[in-house]
């Protein structure tokens, strides 16, 4: 009868050592690199002999670190927006499926899948160019950048949500007589929050890449904010390898770090 005394699958008691999660070390390395980049960018003005914040064009490394403040802060803002939009999209699809029929849910998510296969990153330079009068306004650019990442987040979040809704412990909870509200509060929300947040991290590398590509073409962030992409593009046009290497290297590192974090977050939620 021992098998009947098992804890519920939604709250397992682990009596054996937990094996290391897939990609955990890589994700931790990515987080460490990203934090180091953010700290170095924040401390970059101190490299100007304690003087006021200014662009240090004479020193490419310091200038690249200063540019990191614009790129990283914009990426964080757009990623939060994109993650929220994507998760909202997935929840809307699920709600449509609950309230109307499965066809509406399928269509909503099929639209996300189709959009995720299009080069939406090109919308960012397009917006940067067409909204020329809004130079200095970061908000519209952040919304468009977030929209480029939202479909991929929505597709992954919906897949995670669908897998969770098929879990046996939800059937067991309903069979035990719990109301839908109790199932939602006690089982669904606690178990869904982590995979949905993990899906949201997928937005971070996408928005950083989209912003950098747009800035590289001269149609991204305003020059006053600074951006790794803009510095790389300018150096490539001028043919200046000394000015090219530091921002390119920092941008590549930041992209690797954000990808590692997103991969580790997503892989950490997959059950063997």
């Amino acid at each position: 009868m021992a098998e009947l005394d098992q804890p519920p699958p939604s709250h397992p008691v682990l009596s054996h050592p937990v094996p290391p999660r897939a990609g955990f070390a890589r994700g931790l390395s990515g987080a460490a690199v990203l934090v180091a980049l953010a700290l170095a960018s924040a401390a970059a003005p101190l490299m100007a002999d304690g003087a006021a914040i200014q662009r240090l064009d004479a020193d490419p490394v310091a200038a690249a670190l200063l540019d990191g403040r614009g790129s990283l802060s914009f990426a964080l803002l757009a990623a939060v927006l994109g993650g929220a939009l994507g998760i909202g999209w997935a929840l809307l699809a699920w709600l449509l499926g609950k309230l109307s029929d499965a066809r509406a849910e399928r269509r909503t998510i099929a639209a996300a899948h189709r959009l995720a296969g299009l080069p939406l990153a090109l919308l960012v330079p397009l917006t940067g160019g067409l909204a020329g009068g809004l130079v200095g306004e970061v908000g519209p650019l952040a919304v468009v950048t977030a929209l480029t990442a939202a479909p991929a987040v929505a597709a992954l979040a919906h897949a995670e949500l669908s897998a969770l809704l098929r879990a046996e412990f939800l059937t067991a909870a309903r069979a035990a007589g719990l109301t839908e509200g109790e199932v939602l509060r006690r089982h669904l929300i606690p178990n869904a929050s982590r995979p949905l947040l993990a899906a949201g991290t997928l937005a971070l590398p996408r928005v950083l890449a989209a912003e950098s590509a747009a800035s590289l073409l001269g149609l991204g962030l305003p020059p006053a904010l600074g951006s790794w992409g803009a510095s790389v593009g300018l150096a490539a046009r001028l043919g200046d390898p000394v000015a090219f290497v530091p921002p390119a290297l920092l941008l590549a590192l930041a992209l690797w770090a954000t990808c590692a974090i997103a991969d580790a977050a997503v892989a950490g939620n997959r059950r063997p």
Binding site: A209, A213, L216, A235, A236, P241, F244, L253, L255, W256
Partner: peptide
């Protein structure tokens, strides 16, 4: 090395090399 080498960054490297 995939995430380290996005297409637009390599395009910038190629542009730099062409200028040279």
């Amino acid at each position: 090395a995939g995430p380290l080498l996005p297409g637009f960054l390599l395009a910038a490297v190629a542009a730099l090399a062409v200028r040279a």
